Amino acid sequence: MSESEIPQEAEGPRLAYHHTPGKGPTIVFLPGYASDMTGTKAVALEAWAKAQGRAYLRFDYAGCGASEGAFEDQTIVNWRDDALHLIESLTEGPAVLVGSSMGGWVMLMAAKARPDRIAGLVGIAAAPDFTDWGFTTEQKMTLLQHGRIEVPSAYSDQPTVTTRAFWASGEANRMMIGQIPFDGPVRLIQGQEDKDVPWQRATQLATQFRSAEVQTWLVKDGDHRLSRDKDIALIIRGVEDVISCLQPSS
């Protein structure tokens, strides 16, 4: 396994990543908002990929985890570009993106930008367009007037910060405003006890893909994290399903 950092741009922040070479397609894990590559799902998928001899990439967006940069300077477009830069710099051939929460939004943006490289998608409590539906009117007004908001986090002792720049970037890059031009296999895994992403968002998202090879798997007792052993097993099954669609003879 390679563990290193490379510059995103000549003068941009250096990105931390773990890359495991192997057979393709390369599985790429995209973390959620204010998350990093050390989470349960990212690490568990890496262990599975190693056991299968599969190529795998997990990384930290700029301003997150071990990567350089200030979190409050980032936008969702920056993070999409981080993902694309590492995919293009470190991998060859097709990639299957596994997007957790906000990572599910990043994966849609990346697939739109690089249809020649992105072959399959697995969404885990995917949260595209959450700048639209995930904030109250009062919070949006605070963002516009004061440039940032802080809200208590259920996953950290520190509040979650959102900036006006991030919010505006999200609003300018909403994906669920029409057909999503992706033709590869898609698996969407969603907990029905998710307090952050209403499960109906997953079923709506599924209808908007141009692809016919789309399935939504609802976990009745699943929460937003979907990090239990049985959830991890389902995520791995989703990745295997997508790979089998891409390589039916394997």
Rank of each mutant, 00 (worst) to 15 (best):
T137F: 06
A111K: 01
A127F: 08
I189N: 04
Q204A: 12
I189A: 02
A206R: 13
D223E: 12
F182I: 07
E138P: 00
G184A: 08
A126V: 08
F209V: 07
W167M: 11
L143A: 09
E193C: 14
V106H: 04
Q190F: 04
G191A: 09
R210I: 07
A154Q: 11
L188M: 07
E88I: 04
L121P: 03
K112S: 11
V96A: 03
E193W: 07
D157G: 14
D223V: 10
G104T: 05
I118H: 00
G134I: 09
L90I: 05
D194C: 08
A206F: 10
T162W: 08
T162E: 08
R148L: 11
G178D: 13
S89W: 01
S100I: 03
L205C: 09
V151Y: 05
T162S: 14
I149M: 09
D221V: 08
G184C: 09
S153L: 09
A126C: 07
R114I: 03
T203P: 00
D223R: 14
A172Y: 03
R174Y: 04
W217H: 11
T207G: 03
W105F: 10
E213C: 07
A126W: 00
R187P: 02
E88M: 09
L121T: 05
G120V: 03
A202D: 02
G103W: 01
E92K: 13
R201T: 11
W133G: 11
A111F: 05
E138H: 10
A113K: 13
P159Y: 08
Q215P: 00
W105N: 06
G184T: 06
N173Y: 06
D223P: 10
T137Y: 01
L90F: 09
K220G: 01
Q208R: 15
S101Q: 06
S89M: 10
N173T: 12
Q190S: 04
F130A: 07
D132N: 10
A111R: 00
A154C: 03
M176A: 10
S100N: 12
T131D: 11
M175A: 14
A202T: 12
P94L: 05
T131A: 13
R187V: 14
S101P: 09
M176L: 15
I180Y: 09
T207D: 08
L121W: 02
T137S: 12
E138R: 12
Q145V: 06
P185S: 09
A127E: 05
A110T: 06
V186Y: 06
V197H: 07
